[in-house]
Design a protein around this nucleic acid. Sequence first.
DNA 1: GTGGTCTAGACCACG
DNA 2: GTGGTCTAGACCACC
Lengths: 117, 117, 117, 117
Amino acid sequence: MNFADNIPIYVQIVNKIKESIINNTLKEGQKLPSVREYCQIFQVTSLTMQRAIKELEGEEIITTVKGVGSFLKEGTQKQLKYTVSKTLLKEFINNMEKIGFSKEEILNKIKEEIESD
Amino acid sequence: MNFADNIPIYVQIVNKIKESIINNTLKEGQKLPSVREYCQIFQVTSLTMQRAIKELEGEEIITTVKGVGSFLKEGTQKQLKYTVSKTLLKEFINNMEKIGFSKEEILNKIKEEIESD
Amino acid sequence: MNFADNIPIYVQIVNKIKESIINNTLKEGQKLPSVREYCQIFQVTSLTMQRAIKELEGEEIITTVKGVGSFLKEGTQKQLKYTVSKTLLKEFINNMEKIGFSKEEILNKIKEEIESD
Amino acid sequence: MNFADNIPIYVQIVNKIKESIINNTLKEGQKLPSVREYCQIFQVTSLTMQRAIKELEGEEIITTVKGVGSFLKEGTQKQLKYTVSKTLLKEFINNMEKIGFSKEEILNKIKEEIESD
DNA sequence: GTGGTCTAGACCACG
DNA sequence: GTGGTCTAGACCACC
């Protein structure tokens, strides 16, 4: 975790977990590591970790069963990948247009950037 | 200004001013509106506005002369457009790769998105 | 604090804190007093204190973690002492030369002054 | 003049004039350039220049005769050189001691600095 | 008129 | 508890 910047730590954790889901590191229906284990992994207090979990519950990505653990819902992976990529795309195009690039120019810029690597 | 979300108002203002520079609404070498005028425009107190101004000074985008006003530095517009777009591009590609898209797929997604409008 | 002269209070505070670092009153890696404590110590409002803190962050002397506190970076003490003394020396010699003293004369003046105490 | 920093312009001008006196560029008893000429030289408005003049009058360095001009007082050069250098010396030693140098160390540092040029 | 600094008190999100 | 942001209004020095 990046403790020095402005993004709340619990949000950073939420994002990391979402990444794991999209990458298929965490598989659908599977039980997630316990809060205690996650605290170790991310080096945070349980309170912070709980918030991250709550957030994921709120977004209907996981369900928590008291005394048992949290589970990934079925069908999340594909949907998450879709919504996240859609958001990234829209935001990116929107921002590029705000600073004066046409759609064509955006496409060219992307091509350049990708080929330059 | 968006008083509801988490981005500090003074950062929002900084971004708006940067946009104005990139759009050429504010021209190089030109005097910016006074702090008091900006307070009216953005509906904030002078202190908040000053923070935004200080930030832009720190980024070497403007220079301020006490009792006279703030001025856009020469050569900012082009450079700002370049660095901002570069950052957007890199971040976007990076994020898309993190969630499992190959460079080719990214390009295709962008094409789709742009053509769909 | 000296509320009477022209040096902004937050700059005076920055200098005092720098002095504490150089004297080793504040040790490297250590947590600084909280903003609220500093407000008591220096008898200023939190905003003024925050400005001082931001300044020190900008100079890469401390790092701040939201909700936790500010910490002295490692390696600051020695470097700060070096740069500050170097600046004082250069400025002093420069000013003395401006008003017509040769390097030799400067040395003699210093000797006199020191021995006279 | 440095219009961008925090030292008031009129103070900067006062210092420059003092330097000229100490260097003997302006000689004792001599008539100073007119306000109008000085405005040209320093590229400032007459109001700012007037303030600088007032300051020098206040410090008893010059006298102004209405409708005629300003004149350097007799005996200023030597005295000015003395007081200015004394101030510089004391301040310098004071500052160096504040950051933990002994008188001996100060002397050594000065020697080093001078010989290194 | 300009920018710069400050207070006193408030509210917020985060750990 | 921590740091971060903001207001409303004030005062100042300077051009």
